[in-house]
Design a binder for these strands. Sequence first.
DNA 1: AACTTTTATTTGTTTTATAAAAAGTAAATA
DNA 2: TATTTACTTTTTATAAAACAAATAAAAGTT
Lengths: 227, 227
Amino acid sequence: MLLPYHLQEKQLIAIDNVIFGYHEDQLKLLLFKRNLEPALGQWSLIGGWVNSMESVDEAANRVLMAITGLKDIFMEQVQVFSNPQRDPGGRVISVVFYALINIQEHNHELVDKYNAQWWPVNQLPELIFDHSKMVEIALEKLRKKASYDLVGRDLLPEEFTITQLRQLYNSIFMKNFDPGNFRKKILSLDALTRLDKKDTSESKKGAFYYTFNHSDGIGFTERIIKI
Amino acid sequence: MLLPYHLQEKQLIAIDNVIFGYHEDQLKLLLFKRNLEPALGQWSLIGGWVNSMESVDEAANRVLMAITGLKDIFMEQVQVFSNPQRDPGGRVISVVFYALINIQEHNHELVDKYNAQWWPVNQLPELIFDHSKMVEIALEKLRKKASYDLVGRDLLPEEFTITQLRQLYNSIFMKNFDPGNFRKKILSLDALTRLDKKDTSESKKGAFYYTFNHSDGIGFTERIIKI
DNA sequence: AACTTTTATTTGTTTTATAAAAAGTAAATA
DNA sequence: TATTTACTTTTTATAAAACAAATAAAAGTT
């Protein structure tokens, strides 16, 4: 069934990163203006080639590092896109990843240098090739992740309110979670520690700040949010 | 950030199929004896190269068709395995898929011809390279699928009892679902039609046969089984 | 200055859904 | 006729979602 290795043709293989961030109560995506033909000047995800001495995951991390200056970031494989006609420039197989980054912490100069820009996920520009589909699938995958784990750890600042966490979830799932039930569910996980500080910018009463417990940062086995 | 296409090195890319079947109350996997160096004669998943004029999904279907004689089978991408050292024969990137097939319907002669064999998932032989890890991840993915959709459609015969469906779920999740609750949950989905026939092979009382409603065969948005 | 309003936040109650356990059923066999 | 077996229905307990009420504190009003 398998041909010997040396008789088999080789392919170009790339990665594309769907980079999520959260800012001003909006889930955002980092896109950049393509600097290469075909489709030069159009908006696209941030991608790169996979070299022979690295895994696709390493390639995705390398590309993310190059554009944001960040390493040790949570990334997850989304799916392989491999329609032979997907890239008009030639046959390229692309492995898509998504990454969750803290929009405050990334290197703005690098992002500017590469003509990259943050876009709200619900107001994206037209993207090249099959990149819109990639975003769609990545978002589905992020939702599954968020329903089993508290993704706020990656997207929110160190200290945050339950309301902020809820608004993050609202923007990921594009629905409004009940404030009372959300709070109850999240706190029942024993994953947060309440601080003695309050955020008074949003309400007169003020909302307590919380941090994630560093102890059990692995994730939960049970579903935490019902979609 | 991206090199021009012609300057970038190409890679060997393959697919590997984790083929699930269900027989004699056991979830099984189709494995075959490798007919190619390296690791000739050892047990492995069923794989093949990806050609330049096909997508990885098409390649996976082609390979599945070649060994089982089946087409239009449910398959899902699992993950890309791409550690540069994963295959001692050289740098090969592998895209793993899993497939659900009805063990009754596949072509036994083809399977025999390729030295393939069905193995219970909880008693697998040693597998080459990273194939054990591939199976592990595929099984996790199957469990997620099964918790949102009724996988019985693909794995069970046309007519089956609720008990058979429950036993399938028992073997997928390696736990024992409560007979009463399982029945209640499954029937509440309105996905099955009860026939006027009974299966009396397992009990004196007999259990009604059911079939899947062909109408809404797409799947459910809500979780149907809690892991 | 004291009182009312407003706002997001927090707590509490009711209703519904799910899981655990128990009881009832049909039909072959002893 | 009693027993056995797996199947099916019902009951009880627990958890989650929907809904309602209370709270704290700044800002506006008399």
